[in-house]
């Protein structure tokens, strides 16, 4: 569809118009993207409560997958099951299989410590360690026992990759807590990529930031997608539309027994999901009529 053909647009666009963001990314960019993570019939339980039910999806390598949906729809829960952060919550359990390059993540022989080095995570609230900027970056390589020829070079590279180097190069020994919120979040991203993960999970990474800091992180994400597979949970639909190749829409549904579960409603190319969703619920959500 082209803007020069309003008649055509009117036919495919239901009224009112859906989200109007210039979508820059497309899942179908002419390159073959192997799935890095594959979820088959995933349900996540907290104790006896089934928070998420029956999710099937896969996340393509070197692409950005966005998980959107209203509060309580289980998108963060799904994200946290991808690097087994849910293991740290007593009573949390995952049913179904999550494969990482064909390896079942929840198999007995999988070491969650090693897994988290390969699948890193950036959190909602910037959480730098109360240490120097340098030590924040060096912590991961140190604890994972990475063979590093020059830690200084590694720190510099990580900070450059996170577009933070120019702002902090003269104060590497200063406390990370003195940085602004946006700088702290980029530091957290730098810290994550310092251990050379393959996948970066981001749990609402911009929700505590102002629009300028958010813009910087979004630019950073698009640049990082060349080298990393990124999965982002966001409340902000415009953000999902701006930065993701593919978008999964989750919502909470009440089952026959009256219990709420998070469900995956639709998983599509971002372009498609935000212009012409398959499901009425998706359309209602992205046009603001529900959620």
């Amino acid at each position: 569809m082209t803007p020069s053909d309003p008649k055509d647009a009117a036919m495919t666009h239901p009224a009112p118009p859906l989200i109007t963001t210039s979508v820059r990314l497309s899942a179908d960019d002419g390159v073959a993207h192997e799935p890095v993570l594959t979820l088959k019939d995933i349900s996540v339980f907290y104790g006896g409560y089934e928070a998420v039910r029956g999710v099937d999806m896969d996340m393509a390598g070197n692409q950005i997958t966005a998980l959107i949906g209203p509060s309580g729809c289980g998108k963060s829960t799904v994200l946290r099951s991808l690097n087994r952060m849910n293991d740290l919550i007593p009573g949390a359990r995952v049913a179904g299989t999550i494969s990482y390059h064909g390896q079942n993540l929840y198999a007995r022989e999988v070491d969650p410590i090693e897994l988290r080095r390969r699948i890193g995570m950036v959190f909602q609230k910037p959480n730098p360690f109360p240490k120097s900027i340098y030590d924040n970056i060096a912590y991961g390589p140190r604890v994972t026992g990475m063979k590093v020829t020059s830690m200084n070079d590694l720190v510099e590279q990580a900070l450059r990759d996170a577009a933070l180097w120019d702002e902090v190069k003269d104060k590497l020994k200063q406390s990370a807590l003195a940085l602004s919120g946006g700088q702290q979040q980029r530091l957290c991203i730098a810290r994550t990529i310092a251990v050379r993960p393959e996948v970066i999970l981001m749990d609402e990474p911009c929700s505590a930031l102002d629009p300028i800091a958010t813009g910087k992180i979004e630019d950073l994400m698009i640049n990082l997608a060349a080298d990393y597979t990124i999965v982002i949970v966001t409340h902000n639909m415009q953000q999902a539309a701006r930065v993701s190749h593919r978008t999964a829409f989750f919502t909470a549904e009440v089952d026959e027994a009256g219990v709420r579960h998070g469900r995956l409603v639709e998983y599509e190319d971002t372009n498609k999901l935000f212009t012409n969703p398959n499901h009425k619920r998706t359309e209602d959500y992205i046009t603001g009529r529900f959620g």
Binding site: M85, R116, F123, F129, V195
Partner: peptide, 19 residues
């Protein structure tokens, strides 16, 4: 959040606790 940050980088429980 400090513990989570440490675990998410591949630190063990003892590393997270002691460091």
């Amino acid at each position: 959040s400090i513990r989570q940050a440490s675990y998410a980088l591949g630190a063990t429980r003892w590393q997270t606790t002691s460091r």
